[in-house]
Amino acid sequence: MRRPLALIIAGSGIGLFIGLSIGIAAGGTAYNGAVFLVPLGAFIGWLISTKSDQAEDLSNNSPSPISEQGGGGAERFGEGIGAVVSSALTIAATVWNFHIDLLQLLGLLPTFIKQPLLFLGLAIVATMLFPPFLVVYFFCWLGASHFGISEEGQYRAIIK
């Protein structure tokens, strides 16, 4: 499965998961949030894939599929699932990097780098205002950890 397709599928899946728990009311009627968030998630996955394709073009590497090996249907299905999970972690790491950029814009990033437990404190405070935030924050941290965040890199995920 090619990386852009895996990112689009992962974005759609994340949009579906989040959208099934919310609704959108407009124009005298209401819709399930998935109607709006599935295409939005697919679009975000596509945007991330174009950004990673541009980075590959700049480094003179041709974009390659995640797996070029042929095989049985079960093996290809397993590789497809792995590609989608990897893409979901990429999207989560991208959201984490946005969070780090926002902290830097507010001038709070140096404080968070000196005291890493403030990330946990931020998650707890934000969860008091918006309870599902803790789950989202955890998965974003998980995605960023998959790409190796560290204090030396200012807790930014280096997405490959």
Results as ranks from 00 to 15, higher is better:
residue 10 A to L: 04
residue 2 R to K: 10
residue 33 G to D: 07
residue 83 A to Y: 12
residue 121 G to T: 05
residue 112 F to N: 03
residue 69 Q to F: 11
residue 43 F to L: 15
residue 31 Y to F: 15
residue 49 S to H: 03
residue 158 I to N: 14
residue 112 F to Q: 00
residue 33 G to V: 06
residue 145 S to H: 03
residue 37 L to P: 03
residue 4 P to H: 02
residue 107 G to H: 05
residue 115 Q to H: 09
residue 156 R to C: 01
residue 159 I to Y: 08
residue 97 N to Q: 06
residue 122 L to A: 13
residue 148 G to H: 03
residue 15 G to C: 07
residue 52 S to I: 08
residue 63 P to G: 01
residue 21 S to F: 12
residue 34 A to F: 07
residue 137 Y to T: 03
residue 24 I to V: 13
residue 115 Q to A: 13
residue 88 A to I: 03
residue 159 I to P: 09
residue 58 L to A: 14
residue 134 L to Y: 05
residue 157 A to L: 04
residue 110 P to T: 09
residue 90 T to F: 11
residue 126 A to R: 05
residue 132 P to F: 06
residue 150 S to D: 13
residue 121 G to S: 00
residue 71 G to F: 09
residue 26 A to C: 07
residue 128 M to T: 05
residue 58 L to E: 13
residue 106 L to V: 09
residue 90 T to D: 07
residue 83 A to E: 05
residue 21 S to V: 05
residue 73 G to D: 15
residue 78 G to F: 15
residue 143 G to M: 01
residue 95 V to H: 09
residue 21 S to E: 10
residue 80 G to N: 11
residue 128 M to F: 04
residue 21 S to W: 15
residue 60 N to F: 09
residue 47 L to F: 01
residue 121 G to W: 04
residue 5 L to Y: 01
residue 148 G to A: 10
residue 61 N to A: 14
residue 51 K to T: 14
residue 98 F to V: 12
residue 19 G to E: 05
residue 14 I to S: 10
residue 60 N to G: 08
residue 77 F to N: 02
residue 15 G to F: 06
residue 53 D to V: 04
residue 116 P to V: 09
residue 105 L to M: 11
residue 152 E to C: 05
residue 46 W to S: 09
residue 142 L to G: 03
residue 81 I to A: 11
residue 93 A to H: 06
residue 6 A to N: 06
residue 155 Y to K: 04
residue 32 N to I: 10
residue 28 G to L: 12
residue 104 Q to M: 10
residue 36 F to D: 08
residue 98 F to L: 15
residue 63 P to F: 04
residue 28 G to H: 11
residue 126 A to Y: 03
residue 53 D to S: 14
residue 84 V to I: 14
residue 43 F to E: 07
residue 13 G to M: 14
residue 111 T to F: 02
residue 131 P to Q: 07
residue 51 K to I: 15
residue 78 G to C: 07
residue 140 C to Q: 12
residue 99 H to Q: 14
residue 160 K to F: 13
residue 98 F to N: 13
residue 47 L to C: 10
residue 68 E to D: 13
residue 62 S to D: 13
residue 158 I to W: 11
residue 93 A to G: 10
residue 24 I to G: 09
residue 81 I to P: 01
residue 92 A to W: 12
residue 63 P to T: 02
residue 130 F to A: 08
residue 129 L to A: 11
residue 24 I to E: 11
residue 102 L to Y: 11
residue 131 P to C: 02
residue 52 S to G: 09
